[in-house]
């Protein structure tokens, strides 16, 4: 009886801690529903008793192109990341290529390079090539965040595929490519989901590459949409926060739909299980 009560007491503490941790998220939603004239009220209202949707109307009328651009860039990054990292991981995990150790090491180091340095290098290159302010340019840059991670996740997963399965395919006359396409890829479905989710989320959230490589583009991602709102010294914080809420939807969907993949991704990047 006492242990049961203690466990529920833990739950209460847990709920309180989660509440404190998520307060900024609640506040974002609260401000997004606050009327402009109540924005400077002191003290601020803790609950949107008199909600307004003018912020969300502003999002609908002004931010849709930004959201669409982000969606295109996100999907492009996912496709590029999976297409590059899955075959490489197959080679590393199952084909035992010489120099594979060195390649894994380079990928690990690549993850540690600060984004600002990559951005500067890309800027110089894109300026020469004339692909500044273009969507393909941004997709390429965004994929550099996800490709090393993708190879590491896929390699860890594919190492666990039993060799017997691949040998059976070989006996049946399948080449490496056929084995990869018809056996390895379908079996690796879960890790494809994990890598795709993170690749999408990272490119969706990217601000550094967007602001350096697409600062003057016609089509800009949603992070630039929010940044412009703030930068214009905009006092309509309900519209800014409404955009922020909308920009958070992919993260929320991810957490609800694919919670176990998320935890797997966080952990796999750091500690092997």
């Amino acid at each position: 009886m006492t242990t049961v009560r203690r466990r529920w007491f833990d739950t209460v503490i847990g709920i309180v801690l989660t509440g404190i941790m998520l307060f900024p998220v609640y506040w974002m939603v609260n401000v997004s529903l606050t009327k402009t004239n109540a924005m400077r009220q002191d003290p601020p209202s803790l609950f949107p008793f008199d909600p307004t949707f003018e912020g969300y109307q502003a999002v609908l009328s002004q931010q849709l192109p930004y959201l669409g651009t982000s969606l295109v860039i996100g999907l492009g990054t996912v496709i590029l990341t999976v297409a590059l990292s899955a075959p490489a991981a197959f080679a590393l995990a199952k084909l035992r290529i010489p120099g594979g150790g060195a390649l894994s090491f380079v990928l690990l180091v690549a993850q540690m390079i600060p984004g600002i340095i990559m951005a500067m290098g890309f800027y110089a290159i894109y300026l020469n090539l004339g692909i500044l302010n273009t969507i393909p340019g941004l997709i390429l840059a965004d994929s550099t965040i996800a490709v090393p991670f993708g190879v590491l996740i896929f390699t860890a997963f594919m190492s666990g595929i039993p060799n017997e399965l691949l040998n059976a395919a070989r006996i049946d006359g399948a080449g490496h490519w056929r084995t990869f396409r018809s056996i390895v890829l379908p079996v690796s479905r879960n890790s494809i989901v994990t890598v795709s989710l993170f690749a999408f989320l990272w490119s969706w959230s990217d601000f550094l590459f967007a602001s350096t490589l697409d600062g003057g583009g016609k089509l800009q991602p949603i992070t630039m949409g929010i940044y412009r709102y703030i930068g214009n010294n905009n006092q309509e914080w309900n519209a800014i926060m409404a955009t922020a809420v909308v920009a958070s939807i992919p993260a929320a969907v991810l957490l609800i739909v694919a919670q176990r993949y998320v935890a797997a991704g966080v952990t796999a990047g750091a500690v092997k299980d």
Binding site: L22, W27, T223, I226, S248, L255
Partner: peptide
């Protein structure tokens, strides 16, 4: 799982919320 939310939000979203 809910504790993961701050980590998954776009940094720009978190940063502008904290600014306000």
């Amino acid at each position: 799982a809910l504790f993961l939310v701050p980590w998954l939000l776009p940094l720009l979203v978190s940063a502008s919320t904290w600014s306000w």
